[in-house]
Simulated scan of single mutants.
Amino acid sequence: MSLAARLKADEAVLSAWSTIPDSLVVETVAGLGFDVVTLEMQHGGHHEDSVLRGIPAIRQAGAHPVVRIPVGRFDMASRALDFGAEAVIAPMVNSAEDARAFAAAMKYPPVGMRSWGPTFAMPRAGETSAQQWLETANGQTLAIAMIETRQALDALDDILAVEGIDGVLVGPSDFSIAWTDGRKVDPALEEMMPAIADIAARTRAAGKHATIYVVDPRLVGRYHAMGFRFFALGSEASYMAKGATSLIETARNSIG
């Protein structure tokens, strides 16, 4: 089942967040049990070559490959899809104009202006019919616009109304900076939680997917109750730190 189908079925999915541009690391992360692995190009080290080589490792592990592109790199959105990504997350989508440019790169005509060339995507998805790919790709590849500024919040309904935008992802760290006018970074800031809940409600009312980056996994249940269904959790550094801390503590405690 595709990521699009799982979200349409209202399933909750958990995404790893990969920042290290090495296919062996991606392969290891993909085998940890996450539903999704997101390759991070905006703040992480991933680049075109590591995305190209990392996606097969994710698919082989049975997870869904997603890519977050750098700000404004809508050309990379199309390339990520041609490499085999099932979804692309675009940061700093602050207006309907931004959303239209993103959707144009993500969808084939008549919805968008994506150029034909799924040289890697079709075989990696096990698809052999170009016609079948053309007829289904727009529905099976997700354009996720990030909501992380006050401008984006003000334009949310206009962004959601853009054909070809399939959902939004809340970036709570940037959102907290915007919410406090630059005074604080706190992804769990209580005073912004009603706004985050409102984003989820408006997104679902528009028939689109509400997704969010989660720094503290204990918040997943709260966000799920708001209507979010895609949850991005931490990065390789946090997975290694948590695992190593537990391993070292258990080993030392065993000495007695």
Rank of each mutant, 00 (worst) to 15 (best):
K242H: 12
P65D: 07
L39W: 02
G182R: 01
K184S: 04
A161T: 07
L39R: 05
K8D: 12
G243R: 11
D10K: 14
K208C: 03
F228D: 00
M41R: 10
D75L: 10
A206P: 00
S50W: 03
L7K: 05
A178H: 08
A225F: 00
V26S: 15
I69F: 09
W133T: 07
H224S: 09
P109G: 06
V93Q: 03
V215Q: 15
M226A: 13
D82F: 02
T250M: 07
S95V: 05
I159A: 04
N138L: 04
D158H: 05
D216N: 15
F74N: 15
A232D: 09
K242M: 14
T19I: 14
A63S: 11
R218H: 09
I144T: 10
G139S: 00
G167C: 03
V13T: 13
A206I: 04
L39N: 04
V220R: 11
S78F: 08
A99R: 14
T119C: 08
M226S: 08
G243V: 12
L153A: 08
F228H: 05
L189D: 07
M240Q: 10
V168Y: 06
M41K: 10
H224E: 10
V215R: 15
A5K: 13
A130P: 03
R100S: 14
R222Y: 02
S15V: 00
G117Q: 01
T203L: 02
L3P: 03
D157V: 01
E27F: 13
I89N: 04
A104T: 07
F175D: 01
A232Q: 13
G45H: 06
R124M: 09
L32E: 10
R79I: 14
A30P: 02
S18P: 14
E163Y: 09
A80P: 13
S115G: 14
I69D: 10
E48Y: 11
R229I: 06
G167K: 03
S95A: 05
P194W: 06
P110F: 07
M76E: 09
V215K: 14
P194M: 09
L153R: 03
D98G: 07
T211Q: 12
V29H: 00
S115L: 01
Q131C: 04
G84I: 04
I177F: 12
M226W: 05
G171W: 02
P123D: 04
D166P: 06
T211H: 09
A103Y: 07
E127G: 00
E249Y: 02
E48F: 08
I165F: 04
D174W: 00
L233A: 08
D154Y: 06
G164D: 13
S173H: 12
I212G: 08
M76L: 15
V220E: 09
A90P: 07
V185F: 02
H64W: 15
